[in-house]
Amino acid sequence: MSEREFRLVVVSGGTSDPSSTRMLADRIAGRVAELARGRDERVSVDVIDLRELATEITTAIVSQLMGPKLTRAVELLGGADGVVASAPVYKAAPSGLFSSFFHVLDNDLLIAKPVVLAATAGTARHALVVDEQMRSLFAYLRTMTVPTSVFASSEDWRDKDLGRRVDRAAIELLLLMESGFADQIRTESWKSYQHEYGSAGGTELDIDLSTDLMRLAAGGSAAPPGEE
């Protein structure tokens, strides 16, 4: 049997180079890949550095037009088995660039995909930003976030506990990817989620002709069944 392969996509909102936000995401992704090797699996990693997409993200917000880099990012995320999403904290919130990127994605792109949430900040007082703000955004996107949030303030970079949290999040992500949860949702329960035509990165093109609205479109009644 050939080794299983997983596609992991890192989304980093870091803006400096090197950026601690990107470093944290890379550590998580690297750890996932390492754990996978020990289990005869392979993980390919693609990185979306939001800094490079900054103007396309703002363009998409004001005009709904997706530029080529953003289109490529959507393709990568659509094909991802797992995601590491890493944001810098600005003013007690994930950065606007990071949030904006997820705002312009369609709601169906990440359904059921396993995600590690990570954030960096200058002070430990921002530690709950991941759980209180990022987690709700990813719940809205209907992702499967792993239980462990990875937060690193300046002082964490000399603390062994950060490595332990990275390890924990990495194995959580790998197990969720191995479970095939997202794929199974896609094949067995996809229709039970609300979708918009053309969503999920342009792949959601099924049209259900048996809905009440479709009957109304074809000259039927808008009344609830039984009242006609």
Binding site: S63, Q64, L65, E196, G198, L205, L209, L216, A217, A218
Partner: peptide, 30 residues
Amino acid sequence: RTPEIAEQAAFYGNGFFANHIFWPTQHSLR
């Protein structure tokens, strides 16, 4: 982007118009 509107146009044999301004041409094709 609303299949129900396309369905209604088709049901009655009316015309269907795609605004075709803000998105790539391929977007209107489906």
